[in-house]
Every structure is written in C-alpha cells, then in structure tokens.
C-alpha cells in the first residue's frame, strides 16, 4: 500500500475498544487516554508540528460515553481544530474523528486501513519533507498558540453553557450563531497570533503586516488595537509618521 509510510497518531478512548479488538498496524501509534475529551487541541497541533501525517481520534458514539459527554467535548475540539488546521495550510481531512459504539462488533484494523487510504492522496506531512517555507512554520505555530490561548479555550469550554442553557438575560444562543461566532473568533485569534509571531523577530508596521498577510491595512490596525489592549504587542518606535510594533512576551 502506498500509504505505508504515513504515520498516523491515534488518540483512543480507553473504553471504546476492548484490548482484544485492537490490532494495531505498524504505521499507527496508539495513545490510550481515559476519555477523548482529554485531548487538548494544542496537543493535536503539536503532533502535526512534530511530524505526524495524520491524527485519528477514536471515541465512543453518543450516547455511550463513560464520562457522559466527553465525546461531545471531543467533537467540539475537532470542529475548531479543523478550522485552525485549514487556516494553517494543512488539509483538515488529516484529522479524523471516529466515534464508534463500544457495544458493536468492530475491527480497529478496518478503520485504520480506511483512514490510511483516505489520506494517501495528501502525501506526507510538509513537516517531514524538510525544506519548509518559513511562512508555513509561522502559520502552524500561530494555530498552536491560538489554540493554547485563553479566548478559544474559554469559548470551547463554554459552548455547552452558551448554546444549551440561557444566560442571565434569559437569552439562548442558537447553534448556528455559535458556529458563526466560533468561525470569526478562530480567524481573529489565528491572525493575531500570526502578527504576534511576525513582530517577535523585528518590529513591523501595519503596512508591512498587511502586505505579508494580504489584508487591508484597516483590518490589520483593528487587530493591532485589540492586541495592544491585551498586552500582546507594544509600540516599539516611530519612523517618520509610521509606528512600528513589537511583540511582547505573553506570560
């Protein structure tokens, strides 16, 4: 099989497959966790950064979660992850969430084979080929930093609260509205962390940044203002009338 070289990291819920059902092919590395909800989006992005070709997340199909809703939490994380991975320039299909019922007869080997053939067309991870474009590294790092930052994590953690129960004003957020919001925030966070990484090495102006990321200077400025408020970035110096910004150390 052509996908033999593809290295798949599989995060697996402890309860989904019995030991006897898990025959693990050599290209798959299984990490058993107590619950799929345990998987931090940062970990998945880091796995990619360290050279995995694809990540498979195996958990129990609702409603059979040993921890009531760990699988739903994993679903939410994957939804966000796919967005981040796409922004970073990787194929979102490289992440697969597989929810199977723990009660059915099933074969782990079958699922891994299927996934291997699905990702065969993407080729090896750009991180493994070497000779990476610096742009690409910045993108993946930005995605990782965004995933480990406060805002996205709070949003993810509070999704249930926001969409399923009413807030103090008696309002309830429809699921679709939340998805739009998530999309927006993921994009914002990603771009902010990208700016943060770019200005780390040398101070840059709004115009420079707009050119690098192909955005309107006005949009860039809006993010910069927010970033200054969050102490991510600070004014470094002014050349003529153009202010130059430099990243601040976050935490």
């Amino acid at each position: 099989m052509g996908s033999r070289e593809h290295k798949i990291v599989c995060f697996m819920c402890n309860w989904t497959f019995c030991q006897s059902e898990t025959h693990v092919p050599s290209n798959v590395n299984v990490v058993r966790v107590m619950c799929l909800g345990r998987i931090d989006p940062v970990i998945v992005l880091e796995t990619f950064e360290k050279g995995a070709d694809a990540v498979m997340m195996v958990g129990c199909k609702p409603p059979d979660c040993h921890f009531i809703e760990g699988n739903v939490q994993a679903e939410r994380a994957v939804k966000m992850l796919k967005k981040l991975v796409a922004l970073a320039g990787l194929e979102p299909e490289r992440i697969k969430l597989l929810l199977v019922s723990p009660l059915e007869d099933k074969s782990f080997n079958h699922y891994t084979k299927q996934f291997s053939s699905e990702i065969a067309k993407f080729g090896s991870s750009p991180f493994k080929i070497g000779k990476l474009k610096p742009e690409f590294i910045v993108n993946v790092l930005a995605a990782k930093n965004a995933a480990s930052d406060f805002r996205l994590r709070v949003l993810l953690g509070r999704e249930k609260e926001l969409t399923e129960s009413v807030n103090v004003y008696g309002e309830k957020m429809p699921k679709e509205e939340f998805d739009v919001l998530l999309d927006e925030i993921v994009k914002e966070e990603f771009i902010r962390h990208k700016f943060h990484l770019l200005t780390k090495t040398k101070p840059l102006s709004v115009k420079d940044l707009a050119k690098t990321v192909e955005m309107k200077p006005a949009d860039v400025l809006r993010q910069i203002v927010d970033m200054r408020r969050r102490n991510m970035i600070a004014l470094d110096h002014v050349e003529g009338t153009t202010p130059f910004y430099k990243a601040l150390e976050v935490k």
Partner: peptide, 19 residues
C-alpha cells in the same frame, strides 16, 4: 480522571497526575 478539564483550562493550569 477523564481529563476534560485539563484539555479546556484556558491557563493550562490543570494537569493530570498520571498522564
């Protein structure tokens, strides 16, 4: 010990003892 909190903590202040 499901670890969902560790995966969501915005400050990454929660870890699991064993994993």
């Amino acid at each position: 010990g499901c670890g969902i909190c560790a995966a969501r903590c915005p400050e990454q202040a929660i870890t699991m003892k064993k994993l």
